[in-house]
Design a protein around this nucleic acid. Structure first.
Lengths: 151, 151
DNA sequence: CAATATTTTTAGCACATGCTAACTTGACAT
DNA sequence: ATGTCAAGTTAGCATGTGCTAAAAATATTG
């Protein structure tokens, strides 16, 4: 193998850039689940006054044991309150996060619909995309969705 | 707490739907890293004829130990070949995946640019979004990006 | 109220993804 | 050629996110 001349001046690969983005993506992953949980809990409370382990397990297609595990982390993070054998509630902080997430979700969803995608596809892709949109991108999405909506 | 009447007919929460989407998102996560790796390896090989552990470590802002670990998994998955103390290469399957990823990345990036976002923001958000776009959404993105590009 | 069914919790496991520290190998310069 | 330094590897650990199986608590129902 040839000696290699210090790959500092890559054409496609701006290293700092890529590294930053990877790091951010890793961090986002850590919060995605939390966001999904608080959003689901908020919705469940809206509809049934409480969110139970079983509801969440069904919703996320995981076992109750997994929900428990995750709830413990969310509690440590100050997003939910939970007492043994009782249902789960949001802290103020959790409620706030849930609202932000719901708004963001709405924006992405409406945006994808405005591109002409089906509800099914839009709903599916929103789930994956919503956690990775910067404020700038969200603003752009919102603008487009609003324009399309008013026509 | 009141008895709850089987939350099967939720308004916002279509359970099967949500469950499906969550399951898919989990699966996507499992492949994201693999995709990022093969794409980076392909780029490195393009530019330096080989991809070394150190290059990948720098690129992803992780330690060489972590790269090693991940490469072992990619090898088990049949995406790369790697021998001790040698640089890393793609299998046919890995090369194919890398190409798909690069195309997808390009599409998402050009699309975000076409919304008027800066290179920096577009590049950042592409990293997060690209792994979660269905073929349908990608098609829509591509169409819009192409239209904007030709003006 | 007692028997049964459901829900929740716990313990123990697995795997992915990261880390540090210590060791080995390879490359280069004198 | 050899000694030093960089690169790669290994072992051991942590955390997140999932699982199963068994135990405990709660709820329902005869």
């Amino acid at each position: 193998m040839p000696k290699n001349e210090s790959p500092s001046q890559a054409i496609r690969l701006n290293e700092e850039h890529v590294a930053e983005n990877m790091t951010r993506t890793r961090e986002e992953h850590a919060t995605e689940l939390a966001e999904d949980y608080v959003e689901a809990i908020a919705d469940l409370i809206d509809e049934h006054r409480e969110a139970r382990v079983t509801d969440l397990a069904r919703l996320f297609a995981v076992t109750p044991a997994t929900v428990n595990n995750t709830i413990a982390r969310l509690q440590k993070a100050g997003l939910v309150t939970s007492e043994k054998y009782r249902s789960i509630f949001l802290t103020n902080s959790g409620r706030e996060l849930a609202e932000q997430c719901k708004a963001r979700h709405e924006t992405v969803y409406r945006f994808l619909l405005s591109l002409g995608l089906s509800h099914k596809i839009a709903s599916r892709d929103t789930e994956g995309i919503e956690h990775h949109c910067s404020p700038e991108t969200l603003r752009a999405f919102k603008k487009l969705a609003d324009e399309a909506g008013s026509s």
